[in-house]
């Protein structure tokens, strides 16, 4: 065990010595990885937040049955009882036009200022219908909606199904863009890391040849170079995470209204620790693979 630690320490020292011997090339590699991961990370962050909204929506899948304007308030409880009798319905809550307006005011946050100009409440009364857990799916929702459509006094039904489908398409687009951009930038970063390590190998050709002359195996010579790539990747991804966090802190307050429209009442969140680790791992992987490319293409002694 002690031997392994000694070898690890020696490897790390050797890798750090290698990186410091060509600081400009190493810096370029770190910054390239960081830029790639910032762009990919920004898309991932947006996708993660959008996904949270969907999860949140799924947790409380409800159907809004909007009542006609001519339905008097005294009939609301009877209509609610009728809706409760539909198979698949768990509970029904009556939302008056005033309650609906208040909810909307809270929901849009700062955008509520727009409501100041309204002379009368344009929102209808509605029944907020919660489904039983076994009906909380697209098919179950469809069955309940079909039954509710036949009830008297209901003007329109809003299940959010179309919205969810559209939102999923937008989410897929964001993810696709992130993956596509990630693939292109990741490959560019890979090539730059590979060239950085190749430059490092060329600048230390005498040293590498000497190691080979004294009987160092290819893995003994290659391990510090792989570690150099991994360290570049780790530094790049740490820098990317720091930049993303900074951007998150600076940019989010400025786009609060837009984000509220996109994410509803959810407050935007930064990456979870596991997601931060995944981003770090991606950076390290880019560094290691770049180093492997360099090692495969260079021969010594």
């Amino acid at each position: 065990m002690r031997q392994l630690w000694a070898r690890l320490i020696s490897l790390t020292r050797s890798a750090l010595r290698g990186l410091s011997s060509s600081p400009v090339a190493s810096g370029v590699a770190v910054v390239t990885i960081a830029i790639s991961l910032v762009l990919v990370g920004a898309f991932a962050l947006l996708a993660s937040n959008m996904r949270s909204l969907l999860d949140d929506f799924g947790d409380a899948l409800v159907v809004a049955a909007y009542l006609g304007e001519n339905v008097p308030a005294s009939e609301y409880p009877a209509l609610a009882d009728l809706a409760r009798s539909v198979e698949g319905v768990e509970s029904v809550q009556v939302i008056s036009p005033e309650q609906a307006l208040e909810r909307f005011r809270v929901g849009v946050g700062r955008g509520a200022a727009l409501l100041e100009g309204l002379s009368e409440n344009p929102l209808p009364a509605s029944l907020e219908i919660t489904l039983l857990p076994e009906h909380q799916s697209a098919a179950g929702l469809g069955v309940v909606v079909e039954s509710l459509e036949g009830l008297p006094g209901i003007d329109d039904l809003g299940s959010g199904q179309q919205w969810v489908e559209g939102y999923l398409r937008a989410l897929a687009l964001v993810r696709g863009l992130g993956i596509g951009l990630g693939a292109i930038l990741g490959f560019a970063a890979l090539l730059i890391v590979s060239n950085t390590i190749r430059l490092a190998m060329l600048s230390r050709r005498d040293e590498l040849e000497l190691l080979a002359l004294v009987g160092a195996s290819r893995s003994f010579v290659g391990a510090p170079l792989l570690l150099e790539g991994a360290l570049c990747g780790a530094a790049g991804s740490a820098l990317a995470l720091a930049l993303l966090f900074l951007l998150f802190q600076l940019v989010v307050p400025g786009f609060e209204f837009g984000l509220e429209l996109l994410l509803g009442g959810l407050s935007p969140h930064f990456f979870a620790p596991s997601e931060c680790l995944a981003l770090m791992a991606a950076g390290v992987a880019v560094g290691v693979v770049g180093s492997l490319f360099a090692l495969a293409s260079e021969r010594f002694a």
Binding site: R17, S21, L210, L213, V214, R218
Partner: peptide
């Protein structure tokens, strides 16, 4: 083969005219 060369070289010491030392 390339993989067997290191084990042979470990049994051979080599001294060069230009010393071949690592300056750092």
């Amino acid at each position: 083969g390339a993989a067997a060369i290191p084990s042979l070289r470990r049994r051979i010491g080599v001294v060069f005219q230009d010393f071949k030392l690592m300056p750092r």
